[in-house]
Design a protein around this nucleic acid. Structure first.
Lengths: 346, 346
DNA sequence: CTGAAAGCGCTTACAG
DNA sequence: CTGAAAGCGCTTACAG
């Protein structure tokens, strides 16, 4: 195990001052009028012996860590795993690393995570938070820390944010079902005040209202285990045999829903038409393929990183907040399209 | 924005020495014979003003960061996303955070990641590496850094590792197909020297050998884009119309494979029986449900963390390496079970 | 261009 | 128990 080289060793070997080495390494040679020849000599030797400055010392001194704190609901959820992968790649390209934590939508846990990120001096935050942390996030924004909310925002907090227009997403999806003559379309959502869920519900409500149809909303309590969730769904479908269409507001509800409908032996779309928010392999390859409201993952990741980088590099003076709402895309597949034949036969 | 409180402020306010505050905070009050009363007073005031030691300074001084570097192939891959979520939860419970990076199986990128983790002084490593970094990992092991390899190991490197017995997994899966009378079973794998892939291939080979049947292995080149991968698979299936069973060695190959078979209009399992390594929602809910060789995710995560914690807390003197090979589970579903009727009809 | 020095915020032997 | 001090490894104003 070779001994760790220090900046002091470099300076001594080259017979220059520590300051010179440090300035060259930090690209301030020109500014400080250090000759090109000397700068080159330093760079060459540093390269030769493979000297790497101690990042901890550097961070302690400069206050910058080049680490971004990413908070997601659950890294194992395909939506968050995908966005995390895209964000990671883009952040790395700009010299930032990602430290992530899953919240499980637990407020207490999330509060700890935020405190922990702060203690570790992350340079910026990318956050998909549970409802109820308005105070903490306001304080964070006020402190001037670069921060981007995504997926969902906090109702009373003005901050940078990248979200999808969920209302339009479910509105168009619901309209698509109603246009085919369905009169009882349910919305399966979670019981929670998260803004993205509220928006998705609102689009559904509006579509039904325009058709003068009653709402049929089932709110899943998500603190339960999977089996309990599915029992709740199953009970709902059994209680509403005339419900011939259902919109799931998020990917995992959709997955549970498909399993429940399968258990009940309901045919899709003949017995019940199905649409889910979020696209993934499962929905695409399911039999029948599931119609989805897809989020523009790549573009969202791009916007999140751009926004954060702008905040990281921008002056603290002007604090401009940007809220970006991106358009989702309704991807029509067989699960929501009543075959002409089937419709006639009814 | 309130000014940051320092240990110095605490000491001054309580009129005690900085050393006393620090020792109490680090649980060395007893050891240093600090009175219970004083220790309590310190703790109480620290709590009251919400003092949090600067972790960077602490890390610089102690050399410990309480951060674990997690290297996966791709955080968006369900296998890695799931294990990452489980590892995160368990690590957090022991006071460690996770910083992750995806390698995309790119050796150069991975080398950078390892260097970056080292620069950031992670306390330990959890690694699923591409082939070809034997030198780097050997050096890491020699340096005494706590480290656990998982999913795959490096042939020539002796290190802690948690892997699944892939050979037995594919052996049993292949036997299951052959036992039903299939005579042409293909293995779809990736062209790569990763040890887990080699093991999975070996189990297949052994099963076929025992039945005196010829191998039929297709190696996918994975640097291609999805469409190219599927074209290669499609060409394979078209070239081998008599192949009535296929084993995919990993989840994403299985997903692509299902899509290709669907495009070709091949019925599962009537035209071709299918088994994939790795379980997930898609395989479970597919029509028909896909038989899989499932890895014990929860138990693996548990073992990985235990092993790393043992190394983190253990003495540097005795360097004991543990290689753990866990049993996968063959989960039989309809995709691999030729219906009696169908078999007869053939 | 350089050298000496302060300082980022801690921890921990050491002498009392 | 305490106080003074060194030291983790850097960066950067400052005086020359």
């Amino acid at each position: 195990m070779k001994k760790k080289i220090l900046i002091h060793d470099i300076a001594k070997h080259l017979d220059v001052s520590i300051a010179t080495v440090s300035l060259v390494l930090n690209g301030k040679a020109k500014e400080k009028r250090i000759s090109d020849g000397l700068a080159e000599k330093v760079l060459k030797y540093v390269e030769e012996v493979g000297y790497k400055p101690n990042q901890l010392a550097k961070s302690l001194r400069t206050g910058k860590t080049h680490v971004i704190g990413l908070v997601v609901e659950d890294i194992a959820n395909p939506f968050f795993a995908t966005i995390a992968g895209l964000i990671e790649r883009k952040a790395l390209a700009h010299g930032y690393r990602i430290i992530y934590c899953s919240t499980s939508n637990d407020i207490v846990k999330t509060r700890d995570i935020l405190a922990m990120f702060q203690e570790r001096h992350v340079d910026g935050y990318i956050l998909a938070l549970p409802d109820g942390l308005e105070g903490e996030v306001s304080a964070l924004v006020r402190s001037g820390k670069p921060l981007v909310l995504f997926d969902r925002v906090l109702a009373s907090v003005l901050a940078n944010a990248v979200v999808v227009d969920g209302a339009t997403g479910t509105y168009e999806a619901t309209q698509h079902l109603l246009a085919q003559g369905l009169t009882s379309v349910a919305l399966m959502t979670i019981r929670d005040g998260q803004t993205q869920m509220l928006a998705r519900r609102q689009g559904y409500t509006q579509a039904l209202r325009e058709h003068n149809l009653p709402e049929l909303v089932e709110e899943i309590v998500f603190q339960q285990n999977p089996e309990q969730v599915m029992e709740q769904m199953q009970a709902f479908f059994q209680a509403h045999p005339n419900c011939h269409g259902v919109m799931f507001t998020t990917n995992y509800l959709g997955v549970y829903g498909l399993e429940v409908l399968k258990r009940l032996g309901r045919r899709i779309p003949e017995d019940i038409a199905v649409i889910s928010f979020d696209d993934n392999d499962l929905f695409r390859l399911y039999t029948p393929p599931i119609t989805v409201v897809a989020q523009p993952m790549e573009a969202m990741a791009e916007e999140i990183i751009s926004m954060l980088l702008a905040a990281l590099n921008g002056s603290k003076e002007t604090s401009r907040m940007t809220q970006l709402q991106m358009a989702p895309q309704l991807v029509l597949r067989q699960s929501s399209t009543l075959p002409a034949a089937a419709t006639v036969r009814r």
